[in-house]
């Protein structure tokens, strides 16, 4: 299905990354998980990823900054923003920052999968 696509998950909650990995790897995606934004951005410099799932609020760097950096460095990489606290405000911000999609916690894995598939199959 998703054979070969590289996905990066950034969230300071390690379970989020772990579950994304557990759900996406069996479908053939290559998943790398980061707890902090800084090492994630460094890794993105080294290698191209097809899609990044990032939390909006993290300890070291704000998710919006991560989004902007990715869109500047490699515009073709899709970005899905996730936040624990869904509000109109944060979602508008996310789309203004050119995020490809926006998920509120708790994440429905089936929806996330469908979204990733749709974004990568375009």
């Amino acid at each position: 299905m998703g054979s070969g696509y590289r996905i990066m998950a950034i969230d300071d909650e390690n379970i989020v990354g772990k579950m994304i990995k557990a759900n996406f790897e069996p479908d053939g995606y290559i998943v790398e998980v980061f707890l902090n934004a800084k090492p994630a951005l460094e890794r993105l410099n080294e290698e191209k990823f097809d899609l990044v799932i990032t939390d909006l609020k993290m300890k070291d760097i704000d998710g919006m900054e991560v989004l902007q950096t990715i869109k500047k460095e490699s515009p073709e990489t899709k970005v899905i923003m996730v936040t624990a606290f869904a509000s109109m405000d944060t979602s508008i911000k996310a789309f203004r920052g050119k995020a490809d999609d926006f998920f509120a916690k708790p994440i429905k894995i089936a929806d996330l999968k469908a979204c990733v598939k749709k974004l990568l199959d375009k």
Partner: peptide, 21 residues
């Protein structure tokens, strides 16, 4: 509420994964 969002999401994701896999 936001603080609760994270553990709730964790539980939810684990349960979904548990069910599907």
């Amino acid at each position: 509420a936001h603080e609760l969002g994270n553990p709730l999401n964790n539980i939810s994701m684990i349960a979904q994964t548990y069910l599907t896999l």
